[in-house]
């Protein structure tokens, strides 16, 4: 697979390490009433779709940036790549 890095252009997926579903960016608030339940869901449960999947890749052998890659899990086709930093900021996170 080739991941089209927003800063570096097309790079071989071999340079990257995979983490999983991009929902891992949205960490629950530890102060919430039912935080334990939310952390259980956050840490262990996955949508695991057959089709488009937003997922986190780390450019370990490159510029060490985190990316949010939209990839089809049935065909392995990659349709969108963004810096995870930009995605997190859009969601109101500081970094």
């Amino acid at each position: 697979m080739i991941i089209n890095h927003p800063l570096l252009g097309p790079r071989d997926a071999q340079e990257f390490t995979y983490l999983g579903d991009a929902s891992l960016i949205s960490r629950p608030d530890a102060q919430d009433d039912n935080a334990a339940e939310k952390f259980h869901d956050y840490l262990y449960l996955r949508d695991n779709p057959a089709g488009l999947h937003r997922e986190l890749w780390f450019h370990e052998s490159g510029d060490r940036s985190w990316l949010v890659v939209t990839r089809n899990t049935v065909t392995h086709e990659i349709t969108d790549v963004q810096l995870a930093r930009d995605v997190a900021r859009k969601e109101g996170r500081s970094k």
Partner: peptide, 18 residues
């Protein structure tokens, strides 16, 4: 391998990735 897809039809999310 299809566990998540089938159980989704019963409204369940599983602690699994395929």
């Amino acid at each position: 391998g299809s566990s998540s897809r089938v159980m989704e039809k019963a409204g369940m999310r599983l602690p699994m990735e395929s």
